[in-house]
Design a protein around this nucleic acid. Structure first.
Lengths: 148, 148
DNA sequence: ACAGGATCGTCAAGGAGCTTGACCATATAG
DNA sequence: CTATATGGTCAAGCTCCTTGACGATCCTGT
């Protein structure tokens, strides 16, 4: 395969990803959530549906349980989540979003849509959909972790 | 524009970017460069052509001069770069790759090509080229910085 | 029923990588 | 030829992550 094409992809993709993260982060902060960083957004993704345990959150973020526990402690202190006793397991605790946590999640969703909007203008709806389909085929793992 | 498409793009793109970084990093390390992290690769990108000053490197990475200076110090200690006096400015120093630095750069290039190879198989050469063209239109800024 | 081991989560200490603030040396402008 | 701007470093501190140790609760085999 064409090596020139192959070698041009990583910088383009990583640059675009960095721009995207920055764009979303700025908008979310502008909505009044200035005490949050992008990493917190990745946590919310896991916590949003039904809550999760600290271990599950750690697995999702790709960090140790201790690190996840510390992040939860921070989010509790800032009022975005709360720890509840797990219904079936007295060892475990279920970390769930508070109302403020949900408000932030909605703001992040809106921010994402706005950050992507210029792409629709640049590519057209059709190619944007094709882009989505292509990315879907490349099957990224569920893990959303800031590795670099 | 279709909100569903818009909202599906960020996780896909970020997940793929994370996978890509991990894939390249693993291959580079496997080639014997175990004392380097992805962030060093971004530095090499800026240093490779003709070297650069600490300030320029800092700008490229999106960190303070002090942070860039510390990274240079680390790379000097590990033998990947060296500091030379700047020909025209006695204040400045030119940071350039050593032979080992160039070897690593070549290894990273090869690693990138290999990490992308599965994409060509999944999409076909034509759509991969279209993907490249689309990403090019979305004009990411030159900055390659791990923000999240 | 219960001993042995696995699992959930936290506490504590330490380290890597970044920041801010202060500072020299040199370059450039008025 | 002072006055200010710029390139780079030194030092201290902060943030987020890690490893290690631990108590509490669960599960499994006998």
């Amino acid at each position: 395969m064409d090596r020139t094409v192959a070698l041009s992809l990583p910088p383009l993709l990583l640059g675009l990803a960095a721009d995207l993260v920055r764009g979303i982060d700025e908008r979310v902060r502008a909505q009044g959530f200035e005490d949050l960083r992008p990493a917190h957004g990745f946590a919310f993704v896991r916590l949003a549906p039904d809550g999760a345990g600290v271990g599950e959150l750690a697995e999702h973020l790709g960090v140790t349980k201790q690190a996840a526990s510390q992040m939860v402690e921070e989010l509790v202190r800032k009022g975005y989540v709360e720890r509840r006793p797990h219904p079936d397991d007295a060892r475990a605790r279920l970390v769930v979003l508070t109302e403020r946590g949900w408000a932030c999640t909605r703001a992040a969703e809106e921010a994402s849509a706005e950050a992507v909007r210029p792409w629709a203008e640049a590519l057209g709806e059709q190619r944007l959909r094709a882009l989505r389909d292509d990315l879907l085929k490349l099957a990224p793992s569920g893990r959303l972790r800031p590795i670099w």
